[in-house]
Simulated scan of single mutants.
Amino acid sequence: MPITSLSQLDKNGSYTYSEYLQWQFEEFVELIKGKIFEIPTPYTQHQQVVGNLYGIIGFYLRRKKYLIFGRPFDVRLPTYDANGELMPDTKTVVQPDICVICDPTKIDERGCNGVPDMVIEVLSPSTAKKDLNEKFNLYEEVGVSEYWIVFPEAKTVSIYLLEGHKYALLGHFGHLQQPGPLQVRTLPELEVELEDVFENVV
């Protein structure tokens, strides 16, 4: 029997990407190590910031080999068993607000099969805990080199860079903290001004 509603799934169950592909409901969800996380409808501030950042980075990447994608866009990340062996059917599929991928061979008709080089998550009240905890730990574990966490209400950006196997905080950037500009380490020639990130954000 096809799964046509999120309510048909056990929220405490564990699922794989193969099962995820069979679901036919309208809600957007992510899988993190088999656990379901529903993606709520984003707030206006969230969408404004995502649009600003996508426009800035996307404009810079014109006619370059690197790729940028925004949600909805499936990113399949590797899952390892208890022995550290790579599982053939991943249990982790996320939809970052923005991701930059430097290796175009990771892209297929279903999204990105592999680890992005840079991920940006813009916090909403309903997703903040996940972005600051589950996703932070996940991106660190799988090796996302650069992770930006954007706080629309505070108008600040926290940037983490992977050093070895752990994230190191580059800085908390905001008009009342470090004023920027924001250096994109994945794209060394690109600097982003804070006022452009939060332009017209109410």
Rank of each mutant, 00 (worst) to 15 (best):
M1V: 09
L6H: 05
L6C: 03
Q8W: 03
Q8I: 03
L9D: 09
L9W: 09
L9Y: 10
G13T: 07
G13Q: 10
S14Q: 10
Y15G: 08
Y15R: 12
T16A: 12
S18G: 14
E19K: 15
Y20P: 07
Y20K: 05
W23D: 05
Q24I: 00
F28T: 12
F28P: 01
V29L: 09
E30C: 09
L31Q: 06
L31P: 06
K33N: 15
K33Y: 08
K33E: 15
G34Q: 10
I36K: 13
I36C: 12
F37S: 02
E38H: 13
E38V: 15
I39P: 03
I39L: 11
P40E: 05
P40V: 05
T41N: 12
Y43H: 08
T44S: 00
T44L: 01
T44D: 00
Q45E: 12
H46D: 13
V49W: 09
V50I: 15
V50H: 04
V50K: 10
N52I: 11
L53W: 11
Y54V: 12
G58W: 03
F59Q: 04
F59P: 00
L61T: 04
K64G: 06
G70K: 09
G70F: 00
P72R: 15
F73T: 09
F73C: 08
P78T: 12
T79P: 05
Y80N: 13
N83W: 03
N83R: 10
L86V: 03
M87S: 07
M87L: 15
P88Q: 02
K91F: 00
T92P: 08
V93K: 03
P96N: 08
P96K: 05
D97E: 06
D97T: 04
I98W: 09
I98S: 10
V100C: 05
D103T: 00
I107R: 12
D108T: 01
R110Q: 11
M118L: 15
M118E: 08
M118R: 05
M118T: 03
V119L: 03
I120R: 04
E121K: 10
V122D: 07
V122G: 07
S124N: 00
S124Y: 01
T127E: 01
D131K: 07
D131V: 08
L132Q: 13
K135D: 05
F136I: 07
N137R: 14
L138P: 04
Y139T: 08
E140V: 02
E141R: 15
V142W: 01
G143A: 10
S145A: 13
E146W: 08
Y147I: 01
Y147F: 10
Y147L: 01
Y147P: 00
W148P: 01
W148H: 02
W148Y: 11
A154W: 01
A154D: 11
K155S: 06
T156A: 11
T156K: 13
V157Y: 00
S158K: 15
I159H: 05
L162F: 04
H165C: 06
H165A: 14
K166L: 13
A168W: 03
L169R: 12
L169M: 14
G171W: 03
G171Y: 04
H172V: 12
G174K: 13
P179Y: 02
P179T: 14
L182Q: 11
V184C: 15
T186G: 10
E189C: 07
E189K: 15
L190N: 05
L194K: 07
E195C: 08
E195I: 10
D196T: 02
D196M: 02
V197A: 02
